[in-house]
Design a protein around this nucleic acid. Structure first.
Length: 804
RNA sequence: GCAGACGUGGCGGAAUUGGCAGACGCGCUAGAUUAAGGUUCUAGUGUCCACCAUAACGUGAGGGUUCAAGUCCCUCCGUCUGCACCA
């Protein structure tokens, strides 16, 4: 038998696909369109991880199948190439990040090509290409013009060793991930994007999408919408009011004290009335020194200081209540102040217990509120609450808000946990922010004709002493003229975060060479939205949310035709190391896809990655398992020896063929790739048992396997002398009637225990089966001497006879 | 702490709606081929049992609903992921 030379075969077909542009998508077609998207890789120095091909193969299979279904399919790829690791490598090795990026991309491209994905390589994009980031900058400018970009003092993570601002991901256990030095908070003026303006729509428009539930839930939780009320508490002896936000206005009668965040502005206003000001100042100082890390680390133990000399008035009952400051109240959420209801909030309860503050029950039906806060809103009934007493919690909420609004001391309010997006990075390897600062005109947008604003060439990529961007050293570049008044002005030296380029890349694929717009309106209209987007769960709350935000903005200004960028979103599970741990260099359990391609071939790698386990679940790598898939493909290769004539399915295999087509078709669409492959393996076993396969059967078999193992199937197709290329064939269809047998085996149970198996006609209905049960000799024998109470018949499955 | 997912042979994992638990693959055992190893092929492979099986037991633990539970309900244990004082 001729040997299965996968290396030769794979190279051969990859060259043919390249030459013929087999998988190029057209922007004009009679066929319906289908757009499949995978997250484009960050071309790191380590090369492709076996996790990449899991997602890429899955959507490659769907894309290839959809082409066979007669669709005009777009399946593109590109490079998300700005980012820190490349920059750090560049600093360390004194190489320009562009050079590093080029090298890494070349390696990634070689690797991806070696696996035989049906990407349309003519549409390759690269976020670091000026012709690409021109449009990233353009979108930013539109946001700036619409008031969605603004500058604000923000605390950043400052590494005292490297003298660099760090991303949250780079701070591990309160110290710098790279040098181990202490990380402190430092205020820095940063560009921000108003994603919060879209919070409501980012939740509600999820209804129009077909994302897997997990993703929807995680996005909703991240955005964190809550409904409640804002309420004003007067400060005794002044005209000042402290406004709080609460989701439990119904418990207002139980508010026994208030808490302000240490940074709350009211503290300054009332400073001359506070009698323990030095203690307050000391607490504020301590709080400001704590990093976010420390604040959450010691979260369990509540601290605080009362504002002595200050009392607030509960607006519903006129009670004078004390006011405290504590860092368990966040400045950045709600109004930075709360009313504390220790009986019905666990945090307030802890605080009240620690400082001996009164606890008043206002929702009855719970446990002893001196021992534990009662927070159940579903069953509670109001007590000790004046006009609310006797109402259910939900009724009380409505009534109290009406009351507050009527009296002018509060109002209904929706809050979100979502914060605006910090958009500045003090780094070199990112898109320059296309703004200039003029003393007279303030921040001014560059004219669009000056885009792209290209990154200047500089000597050293290290950030400055005070954490300013490396671009601050490019003085020639910085000094410019104001587009508005013509006077002297300076360019912004911060760059954009990595998330910028990836927030709209799927639009560029639709028309990657367009020079007049990010993509032509026709292309956007034709391809939008992305039909199916697969990616990692780790991108749910950042990339996925950011790109939905940008897309909604582009929709609002009339650039894109749909509200949502992606219709369907699915997610793959992680591939773990052979030892069931996350793959990482430090654990030494990394598998390089190159090795698998070299030793077993791309088709084996693809098949194994799909066969390894349930697609949406994480699962360990097993090199032994790779062998199993290789053996399967070798058996497929050997099928050519079994080939006989015949243009219709043979009697022996007809049923099996129809069943398998059905199984593979349905499983593929549901991303159950592992069971689809299992079905093809089972069919292979049957074919070998039979010892032959005819032309019609072979064609169908190869077509079903083609999306998973494209090279070997192309080769076998052409070697068998079948017409054309297999990738241009139609996906096989099946006849439902032929997927079932005429006679089937059913299970006969007595009281739920399997006692026998019998053959019956497949089309027997319930009544016929019951009749059969009464007359069949074997069943009679089984129920001999017993009283038949009930017969349960499940057509096609079983008979269960209940006896006494 | 909160939210979500998961728990099935020696291993990865199957099992639309409650209806034959363990498909498919790995590994293992025996045999054939081979000078030998590897490859390949054939048969077997949940547990228990000296043996027989259309027996009994068996899907993290315990309980329940049902003619029937891996699947539904309750309690508990464990693993993973995300969030983390969001009022």
């Amino acid at each position: 038998m001729e040997e299965y030379k996968f290396n030769e075969i794979e190279k051969k077909w990859q060259d043919i696909w390249d030459r013929d542009k087999t998988f190029a998508a057209s922007n004009k077609s009679e066929k319906p369109k289908s757009y499949f998207l995978v997250e484009f890789p960050y071309p790191s120095g380590q090369g492709l991880h076996v996790g990449h091909p899991r997602s890429y193969t899955a959507l490659d299979i769907l894309a290839r199948k959809r082409r066979m279904d007669g669709y005009n399919v777009l399946y593109p790829i590109g490079w998300d190439a700005f980012g820190l690791p490349t920059e750090n490598f560049a600093i360390k090795n004194k190489i320009h990040p562009r050079i590093v990026t080029e090298k890494n991309i070349a390696n990634f491209k070689r690797q991806l090509k070696s696996i035989g994905f049906s990407f349309d390589w003519d549409r390759e994009v690269n976020t670091t290409d000026p012709s690409y980031y021109k449009w990233t900058q353009w979108i930013f400018l539109q946001m700036f013009k619409k008031g969605l970009a603004y500058k604000q003092e923000m605390p950043i993570n400052w590494c005292t060793g490297c003298k660099v601002g760090l991303a949250n991901e780079e701070v591990v256990g309160g110290v710098c991930e790279r040098c181990g030095s202490e990380v402190v908070q430092r205020n820095k003026s940063q560009w921000m994007l108003k994603i919060t303006k879209y919070a409501e729509r980012l939740i509600s428009d999820l209804d129009e999408t077909d994302y897997i539930e997990k993703v929807k839930t995680q996005q909703k939780n991240w955005i964190g919408r809550s409904e409640g009320a804002e309420v004003d508490f007067k400060v005794c002896g002044t005209d000042e009011k402290i406004r709080v936000y609460t989701t439990r206005p119904d418990t207002l009668f139980g508010a026994t004290y208030m808490v302000l965040s240490p940074e709350h502005a009211m503290i300054e206003k009332l400073s001359d009335k506070i009698t323990n000001l030095s203690a307050v100042r000391e607490y504020q100082l301590q709080a400001s020194k704590k990093s976010d890390f420390e604040r959450t680390e010691i979260a369990k133990d509540k601290t605080g200081v009362p504002l002595e000399g200050i009392k607030a008035i509960n607006p519903v009952n006129g009670d004078e209540i004390p006011v405290w400051i504590s860092d368990y109240v966040l400045t950045t959420y709600g109004t930075g102040a709360i009313m504390a209801v220790p009986a019905h909030d666990t945090r307030d309860f802890e605080f009240a217990k620690k400082f001996g503050l009164p606890i008043i029950e206002v929702v009855g039906g719970g446990k002893n509120i001196q021992e534990e806060a009662f927070t159940d809103v579903a069953t509670g009934v109001m007590v000790n609450s004046g006009f609310l007493t006797g109402l259910l919690v939900e009724e009380a909420k409505k009534k109290i808000i009406d009351f507050l609004e009527e009296k002018g001391v509060g109002e209904r309010k929706v809050n979100f946990k979502l914060r605006d997006w910090v958009f500045s990075r003090q780094r070199y390897w990112g898109e320059p922010i296309p703004l200039v600062h003029c003393d007279k005109c303030g921040w001014v947008a560059l004219p669009e004709s000056e885009l792209p604003l290209v990154l200047p060439e500089i000597e050293s990529f290290e950030p400055g002493e005070n954490g300013e961007s490396p671009l601050a050293k490019a003085t020639d570049w910085i000094n410019t003229t104001c587009p508005e008044c013509g006077g002297a002005a300076q360019r912004e030296t911060d760059t954009m975060p990595q998330w910028a380029g990836s927030s709209w890349y799927f639009l560029r694929y639709m028309d990657p060479h367009c020079e007049t717009a990010l993509a032509s309106p026709e292309a956007l209209k034709y391809w939008s939205p992305v039909d199916w987007y697969n990616g990692g769960m780790e991108h749910t709350t950042l990339h996925l949310l950011y790109s939905r935000f940008w897309h909604k903005f582009l929709y609002d200004i009339g650039v894109v035709p749909t509200k949502e960028p992606y219709f369907k979103r699915t997610s793959h599970g992680m591939i773990l190391g052979e030892n069931h741990e996350k793959m990482s260099k430090s654990r030494g359990n990394v598998v390089n896809p190159d090795d698998i391609v070299n030793d077993y071939g791309a088709d084996t790698l693809r098949t194994y990655e799909m066969f390894i386990g349930a697609f949406d679940q994480s699962t360990p790598w097993a090199t032994q398992g790779v062998k199993g898939c290789y053996r399967f493909l070798e058996r497929v290769w050997g099928m050519r020896e079994l080939l006989t004539g015949g243009d219709a399915y043979s009697a022996e295999l007809e049923k099996e063929m129809h069943k398998t087509i059905k199984k593979v078709t349905e499983d593929t669409e549901r991303m159950k790739f592992n069971t689809a492959i299992a079905a093809l393996m089972a069919l292979t076993n049957d074919i070998y048992k039979l010892g032959r396969i005819n032309k019609a059967e072979f064609k169908t078999f190869l077509t079903l396997l083609n999306p998973t193992a494209p090279h070997i199937t192309e080769e076998l197709w052409s070697a068998a002398g079948f017409e054309g290329q297999i990738s241009g064939q139609k996906w096989p269809s099946y006849d439902e009637a032929k997927t079932t047998d005429n006679e089937i085996e059913i299970v006969v149970q007595i009281c739920g225990k399997v006692k026998s198996r019998l053959m019956i006609p497949a089309d027997m209905d319930k009544a016929e089966m019951e009749e059969f049960a009464k007359t069949n000799e074997q069943i009679k024998a089984l129920t001999e001497g017993k009283n038949v109470v009930k017969i349960i018949a499940v057509p096609g499955k079983l008979l269960n006879i209940v006896v006494k």
